[in-house]
Design a protein around this nucleic acid. Structure first.
Length: 872
RNA sequence: GCCCCCUUGGCGGAACUGGUAGACGCAAGGGACUUAAAAUCCCUCGGCCUUCGGCCGUGCCGGUUCGAGUCCGGCAGGGGGCACCA
């Protein structure tokens, strides 16, 4: 046997990519009658260049797509670009490049990079969300949503940068200052467009139960985000002599009305109307309220913030005891936009309330007695009791469970009246708030509405769409370029024809990504969707993306599906049937002596394990090896696809990224790991190319001995890998493929050098199976091997082979034998051996005899096909 | 502060519903081939001991079980999410 040449990915990979393209293998026909399978990876933002970390989830999706295609499905596997957003405007300001040019240039670069990976994508359906053709349809959806009552206007607070004249995202506010201008950020109230996602709160929550193809973690995060609670709204009468002019009551929302008799204070938000009114005549209170507002939105500030309050002097009367007065505090931990912006504090039943009561010396009355506590001496110390128990110190509630007390209080308060209305009202509250979509920016989808002095807000008629972004804009002036573009901004009212003004807000980019998966099903349709196509393809069978989109993107998309169904664009409420959140690719970071980040290519590593040392390859100066971090441009720890395709090839990168680590976890990119993957690629090539001339396809059924065992190994691997792909367990599939190669390599050589025709046929069969199960992960190598094995067609066109069930089952199995739960030996028995004979052969073992020491076993447990355990 | 998850060799990880702990890979060590190197192939690779055998071992402590990495209770450490949500 001559030594085969090394496999050369630089030649093979472009060759097969071209062959797939020319055969239009991955272009999907909506009219194809086979069962559909829609696999989608979250589309990328065109930030500049792609690195290998980006390509891991595309590779996962590609393995699924190629496997499902072989399984006989009509597979849709498209790709596009989430192309609107702030980075393009930042680039425009920094580099004087037009956001559109910058974006499309990046798309061009990244598309070329992605294509190096050999992904089986239907590129004919590609679009970018900044394409006029796309956002035109998005404006049509907006108009339809508006008509259907799914869009509203709401005044909400925003972070305003007075220098840049722009609204800042939370992440752009650093220590209360604008990230670019450094100016003190103001809180401004702006009228904003919102999508009424809260109309669907209950549906969005309830339907999570049915999303069993989603990770539990994501389902839980969504449930928490929607945040349903059942409680009681209670109206408390203000003590008239303490109340500000015109105020008579305070309404609070509580989920623990059962603890009403343990209440000792009221706490209201700084923005609560009662607080504002009281502050008018109380300068110290006004100052405190101002301090609360300044605490703003920073989470870390809030985490460390001390619970603080300020006594307004106002008092309320307890609903069940007119003589019982409670003070009203303004507290920094009460939020105006949840519930009623006011709570009653029960220190014994809530830790935060307890901390507050201790600080301001308020009464702490236990009202729930823990099950194992003694009523005589139970007292609250440092910790509140939030658990179940028996009601005490609570008048007519005493002896009840908290749940019964909840009902009793609610019934009573609903029957009691204050100013002619019930004093209590059972309510369901959601944390979920409406989705504000207004962005005061240029590079986004224009909101197709005209402001007319006479007609008010007038949607742009569909016939006049799209409202396109003007090209002649400047970022020289601070603020939104659309706002100071007179020719674009000033238009006639579509309704009355008088001069009017365009809405200059553009849409949140989350809107763009909330329906792209539907557009892929009919990307050239005049309407936003072809409902037949959308209904046929959706839901996406397998959606793959990062955990960072677990809440907003997925929730907004679920809302959009419902809104689009309501407006007749499709009839699918849940857009994603299966969801998978993949881990990232991480890499070591390197810093030079002066603290700057270094590119891995610039670093030379010496030694290994704890003795590893790094040096600057040019200067020889020592380099600090930093922690593993997600690959990112800013830390320079990236590896580009072209770095890999120029050396090891895309298959090696694909193979390595899916091996070792389970797909939901991060994987560390190491040179030695990539080399290991490449060694295996080359090993398979040597095995196949070396054997191919000496073996031939034929009837392997007469193969015996090692050749028969080889067949069994191949069919078992075929079954296992298929199951692994179904579960996205790529790392296990790869381990199984390694095992198969280890098992068959020596047998293949013997088959090649011998004269056993059935053996040669078995070798050909085993190698063909090996190549087919590798093909979804290493498609280029697979094509090369497939051809050399003498197959006429491309492996990408071949159906997934069927395993022979007769070859999967073993006639004899090896059973471990334990004594008192410790393994002492093993026995080989027939698969269907009787219990008695298994027990008998286990007891014959030397090790068993030795441990029993002549005594009879107390008990023998035989788990068929599993284990024998002897209790001595 | 609240909620969730995780913890297995030097490393990444495997172990189906409680049934042989450490598959597979990486790193390391030894050997073969070679004038040499690369490549390749073979062997060793959790710890300890009295080494053809045995004891211990899946973060720690306890429990359930014939049998626990897996189930239960407690503790420790690490990671993630959050809108202080009443």
């Amino acid at each position: 046997m001559t030594t085969p040449e090394r496999y050369n990915p630089r030649a093979s990979e472009p060759k097969w990519q071209k062959a797939w393209d020319e055969a239009r293998l991955f272009e999907t026909d909506n009219a194809d009658p086979r069962p559909k399978y829609y696999v989608l990876e979250m589309f990328p933002y065109p930030s500049g260049r792609i690195h290998i970390g980006h390509t891991r989830n595309y590779t996962m999706g590609d393995v699924v797509a190629r496997h499902k295609r072989a399984m006989g499905y009509n597979v849709l596997h498209p790709m596009g670009w989430d192309a609107f957003g702030m980075p393009a405007e930042n680039a425009a300001m920094q580099n004087k490049v037009h956001p559109r040019d910058w974006t499309y240039q990046n798309i061009g670069t990244m598309r070329a990079q992605l294509k190096l990976m050999g992904l089986s994508i239907d590129w004919s359906r590609e679009f970018a969300t900044c394409d006029v053709d796309y956002y035109h349809r998005q404006q049509m959806l907006f108009v339809d949503f508006l008509e259907a009552g799914l869009v509203g206007r709401r005044v909400s607070k925003v972070n305003w940068d007075p220098v840049d004249q722009t609204v800042l995202a939370n992440e752009q506010v650093i220590d209360g200052k604008g990230w670019r201008s450094g100016a003190e950020v103001e809180q401004r109230e702006l009228a904003q467009w919102v999508f009424k996602i809260t109309d669907f709160s209950q549906d969005l929550l309830g339907s999570i139960d049915d999303l069993d193809g989603w990770p539990d973690k994501v389902r839980l995060m969504q449930r928490n985000w929607i945040g349903r609670s059942e409680g009681l709204s209670i109206r408390w009468a203000l003590t008239p002599e303490t109340a500000p002019e015109g105020e008579t009551e305070l309404e609070v929302y509580t989920t623990r009305p059962d603890t009403l008799f343990g209440s000792s204070f009221m706490a209201i938000a700084a923005d609560h109307p009662l607080a504002r009114k009281a502050a008018e005549t109380n300068a110290a209170l006004a100052a405190f309220c101002e301090e609360c507002r300044r605490m703003g939105t920073s989470v870390t500030a809030l985490e460390t913030a001390e619970k603080k309050g300020f006594d307004t002097g106002i008092k309320v009367r307890h609903p069940f005891d007119a003589d019982w007065e409670l003070p009203v505090y303004v507290a920094n931990f009460v939020l105006m936009d949840y519930g009623t912006g006011a709570i009653f504090g029960c220190p014994s039943g809530d830790q935060r309330d307890l901390d507050f009561a201790r600080k301001y010396d308020l009464p702490v009355v236990p009202v729930v007695l823990p099950p194992d506590a003694d009523a005589e001496d139970f007292a609250i110390g440092e910790e509140a009791w939030t658990g179940d128990g028996t009601m005490i110190n609570s008048s007519f509630l005493d002896g009840m469970t908290p749940a019964d007390a909840f009902a009793a209080i609610a019934d009573r308060l609903e029957a009691m009246e204050l100013d002619g209305r019930p004093q209590g009202d059972r309510q369901v509250q959601f944390k979920l708030r409406d989705w504000g979509i207004s962005r005061q920016r240029y590079w986004g989808c224009p909101i197709p509405v005209v402001h007319c002095d006479d007609c008010g807000l007038v949607p742009v008629p569909k016939a006049q769409l799209p409202v396109t972004l003007p090209d002649d804009i400047t970022f020289e002036r601070p603020g939104n370029p659309l706002d100071h573009h007179p020719a674009w901004k000033h238009v006639d009212c579509p309704s009355c024809g008088k001069p009017a003004r365009r809405e200059t807000d553009t849409m949140d980019t989350f809107v763009d990504s909330s329906w792209y998966f539907a557009r892929f099903t009919a990307p050239n349709e005049d309407a936003p969707t072809d409902p037949d196509a959308a209904n046929a393809w959706l839901p996406v069978d397998q959606y793959i993306g990062g955990i960072e989109h677990a809440i907003l993107h997925l929730l907004y998309s679920r809302f959009f599906a419902r809104a689009m169904s309501r407006t007749g664009h499709m009839a699918v409420d849940e857009p994603f049937k299966g969801l998978f959140t993949q881990g990232m690719v991480v890499h070591e970071t390197y810093r030079s002596e002066d603290g700057g980040w270094l590119d891995p290519g610039q670093v030379r590593i010496e030694g290994h394990d704890s003795n590893r040392k790094a040096f600057d390859a040019d200067t020889g100066k020592p380099v600090t090896i930093g922690p593993l971090e997600k690959m990112s441009k800013s830390k320079k720890n990236t590896i580009g696809p072209e770095d890999i395709t120029q050396s090891f090839g895309a298959d090696t990168a694909r193979w390595f990224m899916l091996s070792d680590s389970p797909p939901e976890r991060d994987v560390e990119w190491t040179d030695s790991g990539a080399e290991g993957a490449h060694r295996f690629i080359q090993r398979v090539w040597r095995l196949v190319a070396g054997a191919a001339p000496t073996i031939a396809a034929g009837d392997p059924s007469a193969a015996n001995g090692d050749f028969a065992a080889m067949r069994k190994a191949a069919h078992k691997a075929l079954k296992g890998v298929g199951e692994d792909f179904e579960r996205l367990a790529f790392n296990k599939a790869i381990a199984r493929i390694h095992e198969l190669v280890n098992a068959i390599a020596p047998v293949i050589e013997r088959a090649g050098s011998g004269n056993d025709r059935a053996g040669k046929a078995a070798a050909h069969e085993a190698l063909s199976i090996l190549i087919q199960i590798m093909a979804p992960i290493a498609p280029h190598l697979a094509e090369e091997c497939w051809a050399i094995l003498g197959h006429a067609d491309m492996v990408a066109k071949e159906p997934w082979p069927a395993f022979d069930p007769a070859l999967i089952a073993d006639d004899t199995i090896v059973l471990p034998v334990q004594i008192n739960g410790k393994k002492r030996g093993e026995i080989a028995v027939a698969r269907d051996a009787e219990r008695d004979s298994v027990e008998a052969s286990a007891l014959e073992l030397d090790a068993v005899q030795r441990h029993l020491n002549g005594a009879a076993p107390k008990k023998v447990i035989v788990v068929p096909g599993r284990i024998v355990n002897i209790v001595a």
